[in-house]
Design a protein around this nucleic acid. Structure first.
Lengths: 333, 333
DNA sequence: CTGAAAGCGCTTACAG
DNA sequence: CTGAAAGCGCTTACAG
C-alpha cells in the first residue's frame, strides 16, 4: 500500500458510509456502540491515520497554537514555554514555537507565517517594536491572542494581557531588604526606557520612597555578564551599597558570580534578591533569594484560559495579574 | 467582510482565473510579470491570506517540522532547539515543538499527534523507552526523520543519526587533565546503563587506560543538584581526587557551586572540565573549562541537511559526527 | 501565457 | 442511527 488510507477506505473495510466513519472520528454519540467498535477495528486493521489538514479545511480548526517568545534562551521564558506546551498537548493541541530574539522584524515575519498555517490562537510574549503592525495583522486574521509577560498594545479588550504582579514582587523584595537592615539599596539591570523595566522597578521605587531611601539604578541587559560586571564596578565605585534587587535572576546570578570572584559572600553585609525564581536559584551557592512568579503554573493557567476561550468563545479578562511570593534563601538571610 | 478572502476572490478582483492566482502564489514563471503584479496588488487590496491547509490537502506538504526533545529545560537542548527553529524559519518552515521530559509514553503520544498534523519531517532527540513503537509509527507514516544527540534505533539508513563526537570530546578533555598533572581523575554524572553515558565516558576510559590510571565513576542525574552533592561527598570520601570530567555542564556547574560552598577554588589542585559549552560556562566564576559541541551550529546544520533531504529526496548519511573542541577556562588552567 | 474541471480527505447539513 | 451529496480552498494536469 503506497497511498495512506482515507476514511473512504475505512468505510469500505467496515461496510459503512464515509459519514459514519467521520462521526466515529468525532466521537459523535449518534453512532451505535457496536458500529463504532467495528469502525475502530477497521481503522486499526488498515492503519488509518487521521488527516487534520483535510478536517481543517471544512471545519477551520487546526489544533495548532502559535507560541511566540522574545527570548527563549532565558530559562524563565523556557520554563513558561515548556509548561504551556505540555499543558496544550494534554488537551490535544500542538504548539508551533518561535523565538524572536527581541527582533520585531522577525516577530512580524513569524506571526505572518503562523497565520498562514492557520493557528487557532496566539500566545505572544512580544518583542518591543512594530507592535501595531504585528497586532493589526493578527486582528485582521481574527485570531484569539493573549499578550503575556509584557503588554505592548493597550487594547487589552482585543488582546487580553496576563503577567505576574511585578509591582507587588519588587515591593515585597525591597521591603524585605529594608527589614533586614539594608539602607543603601540599588536596582541592577533592566534596559532603560522599556516598560517592563519601569514596571519591575516600580515597587522598588515606592518601597524606598516610603522608607525615605534614595534609589540608585544601574540599567543594563538582562544577562549574567551584566550582573557580574556590575558587581565588580559596584565594589569599586559604590562600596557602601548593602542591598541589591535585580531585574531578573540571570542578572542576580551574574552578580553572585562576581561576588565569588571578589571573595564577597552575599547574605550578610551585602544582600541580593533576584526576580523570577528560575530553577537554578535553589542550586546556586549561595542560594539566591528571589521573587517567585510561579512560572510553570502561570504557563498552565494561560493554556487553560486560552483553550476555554476557544471553546466557550468568552475571552479572558482584559488584564490578569498573578500573585508572586518571596523566596528567602542564603543571599538575604 | 466576515469571511476571509480566497483565491476566488482574488481572481475576481484581478480579473483572472483561479488557476492564474494559484500560479502567482507559487511563483510560477509561466505567469507574465504584468499579470503577476496585478494579481499581487489585488491580494494586498482585499487582504488575502494564503491558506496552507487547503494547499496541503492537494500537494501534501505542510511546511511543518516536528521537533521532539527529551529535556528542553537543559540549556544545551534549548539552544539546539532554538537554533534549529530559527534556521527553519529562515527557509519558511515552522517548528512544532514538544518537550517529552524523558517520558517515552508522552513521546509516543506527541509523535502520533504530529503525524496527524502532517509534519513534513521529524527531528527527534529521543527519550529512552518504547523506541520501536515510536519509530515504527513514524516509518508507517513514511515521514523523513533524523535522530539527533542520541541514537535509540539502529536502522540509521531509515533514521539518520547525527551527534557531536562525544568520544573524541571526552578523550580530549581527559588528556588535557592528565597533561595538567592530574592523576586521580573522576567521571561525575550520567545515569548508569544509558547509551549516552557509555558514549560520553568512552574517551575518558580510553585516555585513562593509556595513561595507566584507574577510572572512578560517580553516576547520577544530569543536574546541578547532583553535581553539588557529589562535590561535597568527594571532599569527604575521596579528598585525593585532583581532576573531574563531568557528564555535562549542568553537573559541572553544580560541582562548582559545591566548590564555592566548601571554599575550594577549582583550577589549581582541583581541576574540573564540563561538557557541552552552554553559554553560562563563560559567565560562571570561575569560568568553566568544557568541551564545546558548537551546538548552535549543529542545530543549523541539522536544519539545512533535513530541508535538503525534503527537497532533493536524498537522505543525509546514516551517521554524522560533528567535531568538538576543548575550551580551556579557569577551572583547568 | 491563461482558463475550466477535477480532486485532495475530510465535515456538514439534510433526508430517511 | 446511517447514507448520499455538497463543499472547504487550494493545486494539478490538461486544453487552448
Amino acid at each position: 500500500m503506497d497511498r495512506r488510507p482515507t476514511i473512504k477506505d475505512v468505510a469500505r473495510a467496515a461496510g459503512v458510509s464515509k459519514s459514519t466513519v467521520s462521526l466515529v472520528l468525532q466521537n459523535n454519540p449518534a453512532v451505535k456502540a457496536e458500529t463504532r467498535v467495528s469502525v475502530q477495528k477497521a481503522m486499526a486493521r488498515i492503519g488509518y491515520v487521521y488527516n487534520r489538514a483535510a478536517a481543517t479545511l471544512r471545519s477551520s480548526n487546526t489544533g495548532l497554537i502559535g507560541l511566540i517568545i522574545n527570548d527563549l534562551r532565558n530559562p524563565f521564558f523556557t520554563e513558561f514555554a515548556i509548561s504551556l506546551q505540555m499543558a496544550l498537548s494534554n488537551r490535544h493541541y500542538a504548539a508551533v514555537v518561535a523565538n524572536t530574539d527581541e527582533d520585531p522584524d522577525l516577530q512580524l515575519q513569524m506571526v505572518e507565517a503562523m497565520i498562514q498555517h492557520g493557528v487557532d490562537a496566539f500566545v505572544i510574549s512580544p518583542a518591543y517594536g512594530r507592535e501595531d503592525e504585528t497586532f493589526d495583522a493578527i486582528a485582521r486574521a481574527g485570531i484569539p491572542t493573549m499578550q503575556v509577560l509584557r503588554r505592548v498594545v493597550d487594547d487589552t479588550g482585543a488582546f487580553p494581557f496576563a503577567a505576574p504582579d511585578y509591582y507587588a514582587g519588587s515591593q515585597l523584595a525591597t521591603r524585605h531588604l529594608i527589614d533586614k537592615g539594608c539602607r543603601r539599596i540599588a536596582y541592577v539591570g533592566g534596559l532603560e526606557g522599556r516598560a517592563v523595566t519601569r514596571e519591575r522597578m516600580s515597587g522598588y521605587l515606592d518601597a524606598l520612597r516610603d522608607a525615605g531611601i534614595e534609589p540608585r539604578h544601574f540599567p543594563g541587559r538582562p544577562s549574567r555578564a551584566f550582573g557580574r560586571e556590575t558587581l565588580l564596578q559596584l565594589r569599586q565605585q559604590d562600596p557602601d551599597i548593602d542591598g541589591v534587587l535585580c531585574f531578573n535572576d540571570l542578572t542576580a546570578l551574574g552578580l553572585l558570580a562576581g561576588c565569588n570572584q571578589s571573595g564577597l559572600v552575599a547574605g550578610r553585609g551585602f544582600r541580593v534578591v533576584g526576580f523570577d525564581d528560575i530553577e537554578e536559584c535553589a542550586d546556586s551557592y549561595p542560594g539566591l533569594s528571589t521573587v517567585s512568579c510561579d512560572i510553570a503554573n502561570f504557563g498552565e493557567n494561560i493554556a487553560s484560559g486560552l483553550l476555554d476561550w476557544l471553546t466557550d468563545n468568552k475571552a479572558p479578562q482584559p488584564e490578569t495579574r498573578t500573585p508572586v511570593h518571596l523566596v528567602i534563601r542564603d543571599t538575604s538571610k
